[in-house]
Computed example of a mutant assay.
Amino acid sequence: MSEPFLIGENMTGGYGTGADILHGCTLAVEKGEIAVIVGPNGAGKSTAMKAVFGMLNLRTGAVRLDGEDITGLTPQARVGKGMGFVPQTSNIFTSLTVEENLEMGAFIRRDDIAETMAQVYELFPILKDKRSQPAGELSGGQRQQVAVGRALMTQPQVLMLDEPTAGVSPIVMDELFDRIIEVARTGISILMVEQNARQALEIADKGYVLVQGRNGFTDTGKALLANPEVRKSFLGG
């Protein structure tokens, strides 16, 4: 059996010298797949994803990308390896224009970014219309598009999204999910934490239900949606 493209395996750890938040947690995603992490508040969802990105200390476990052990790498070094991370808040430069935000996303690149910029504008046409506008003047949904677009400017192999639809309307949520599906179709792996569990599992190839920092249920998105226990405990029946 070949290993998943990205795996955080048996991760136990927490922030700094604090108590462990994760307890033997495993997350994995294949190339071009969408993997969604859901679960109750305080389950360690965002912490688990941050662990994969190198933002907390693991006491046990390992993170491997395309077969390479990257457990000891800083988040910055992981970006260089092809990982993009979009935090839930403070994820854009509000005083810079939309286009300047996208240019900031490409800071590690030394090649021509024009083609990637064009791809981002194709994915998010509204950003092209508003490219000269300060990002702080945009709506919540548009800001999220800027944040995702900026991460795509690094040409990541894996895109990690922390609650991309937090605080946006249902219409905007559907639109963002459609764009996320489009990104995955280009071969980029998506790992995301999402509060809108039912809607997220509908687009997920793989779903992880975390409970108190542990894997509660792991299956395809469709199977988790159909699982009576998952429905009752985590999806409101």
Rank of each mutant, 00 (worst) to 15 (best):
L161I: 13
M160H: 02
V172A: 01
Q199L: 11
V120D: 12
Q155L: 11
F107Q: 06
Q212S: 15
A184P: 07
I126H: 06
F107Y: 15
D205F: 03
T154M: 13
A200I: 03
A118S: 12
N215R: 02
E137V: 00
G167I: 05
D111E: 14
L159V: 13
A151S: 14
G207Y: 06
V148T: 14
Q199V: 04
Q195T: 01
V168H: 11
L176V: 06
Q119S: 11
G136A: 12
R110P: 02
Q199M: 10
G207A: 03
I181V: 15
A166T: 12
S169C: 04
Q155V: 09
M117V: 04
P170Q: 11
L191C: 06
V183H: 11
G105M: 02
L159Q: 06
R110N: 13
G187Q: 02
R110W: 03
E115M: 07
L152N: 10
A166M: 14
M192V: 08
L201S: 14
P164F: 05
N215C: 03
D162I: 11
S139H: 10
Q144G: 06
T165Y: 05
N215Y: 01
V120N: 14
N215I: 00
T165V: 14
G136P: 03
R150I: 02
E175A: 08
L123V: 01
A204T: 08
G141K: 08
A200T: 06
S189H: 02
A151R: 09
M192W: 00
T186E: 14
Q133S: 09
L159K: 07
G167Y: 10
I188K: 12
R185W: 06
S189T: 03
S139G: 07
N196I: 09
G105R: 02
A197D: 02
L201Q: 12
I180Y: 10
T154Y: 00
G213K: 03
M153Y: 07
E175T: 10
M117P: 03
S189P: 07
M117S: 05
D112W: 04
